[in-house]
Design a protein around this nucleic acid. Structure first.
Length: 319
DNA sequence: AATTGTCGCAACCGCGGTTCT
DNA sequence: TAGAACCGCGGTTGCGACAAT
């Protein structure tokens, strides 16, 4: 048999902690420490609380040197940088910010930082935006281990048609190497994602289409308002690994998190795709510039679009 | 002044890995 | 070695405070 149950759930108090409870818990831990056993602690301390609740209260509120209140710009930057690098691993992020708790940072992120960093223009301007913008989307599926993010950068003329060469890029931290199944799944989800979130696009027969089909007018039959969604059937892990697929040339970056890039193109050459030495491509998350972080941050928000009038051309997004 | 809506944060829930009997 | 509890984590919820109408 295993251990005895940690607490009688019917007889433990829940909800906000009173000053008296705080004092009891603090006094007990100051005197005896946690003893490495949170479950036994409340009884010893004379508290009618679950051990789990005591632990949370202590770690997030009562323990010494906890910082409350405003986050500094430096803290903002560190949070953003680390989030861009490792995602929502709040405990790790908190470890880099003395006095801050994971819960604190998580709340701060969800309620302040995301909004602070996002330059979201009103919905009413989306479809009439005449200049360059980037559209960010993310999708995830509970039925699949894949969770990926990506962006489409598009230049639109004032009439809403697409202009210039466009590119689309995706990244997935969970995509396994040389797995065509994963790749297919990714592409499938990509299409669903596009269909679900990109109101200005449609996917038909593996073609991501901008505007309407009638706008296809090239003399050679090719359409500059279409992007072919193909699969990168085979690729290698490793930073700087060069791949070629459908006439494009790009790099796959394999960082500490096994992050890899799957990049799809409209079939033409993708000039401008190079391995960056700094910024987003950097190894050290703290090397990220704030503007770049903003872009990264935006990718973590489901179903939201970020419009950036100052950026043109291709850009990869990853985390 | 009363009502409704929004925001921020503390606390809870559930899951996965670890530890213990 | 199996099974149950413990621990820590990230996601979500509930509620009080404040703002807008």
């Amino acid at each position: 048999m295993g251990r005895a149950p940690c607490c009688d759930k019917a007889n433990v108090k829940r909800g906000p902690w009173s000053l008296e409870e705080d004092a009891k818990l603090k006094e007990y831990i100051d005197k005896y420490g946690t003893g490495g056993n949170w479950i036994a602690l409340p009884q010893k301390a004379g508290l009618k609380r679950c051990g789990k609740s005591c632990r949370l209260r202590w770690l997030n509120y009562l323990r010494p040197n906890i910082k409350h209140g405003e986050f500094s710009d430096d803290e903002d930057k560190i949070i953003c940088s680390l989030f861009a690098s490792i995602g929502s691993r709040w405990s790790i992020i908190a470890a880099q910010l003395p006095g801050r708790t994971d819960n604190d940072i998580k709340n701060y992120w969800n309620t302040n930082l995301k909004k602070k960093l996002k330059g979201i223009i009103p919905q009413s301007q989306r479809n009439t935006q005449p200049s360059t913008f980037s559209s960010i989307f993310q999708t995830s599926s509970s039925s699949s281990p894949l969770s990926f993010k990506g962006c489409i950068n598009s230049c639109y003329n004032t009439n809403g048609s697409l202009k210039g060469t466009e590119s689309i890029s995706f990244s997935s931290s969970l995509l396994s190497c040389n797995s065509s199944a994963s790749t297919n799944s990714l592409l499938h989800q990509t299409q669903e994602s596009l269909l679900g979130h990109m109101e200005n696009y449609q996917v038909k027969d593996n073609l991501l289409m901008f505007g309407n089909e009638a706008s296809c007018s090239s003399s050679d039959g090719s359409c500059n308002n279409q992007i072919r969604l193909g699969k990168v059937a085979d690729y290698e892990c490793g930073r700087g690994t060069e791949i070629e697929e459908m006439g494009m040339q790009n790099y796959i970056y394999n960082g500490a998190e096994e992050t890899q890039k799957l990049i799809l193109s409209n079939g033409g050459s993708l000039s401008g795709w190079t391995e960056k030495q700094n910024g987003l491509w950097g190894d050290n998350p703290l090397d990220y510039g704030l503007e770049e972080i903003k872009q990264l941050i935006s990718t973590t928000s489901c179903n939201n679009f970020l419009f950036d009038e100052n950026k043109t051309g291709e850009r990869a997004l990853y985390y």
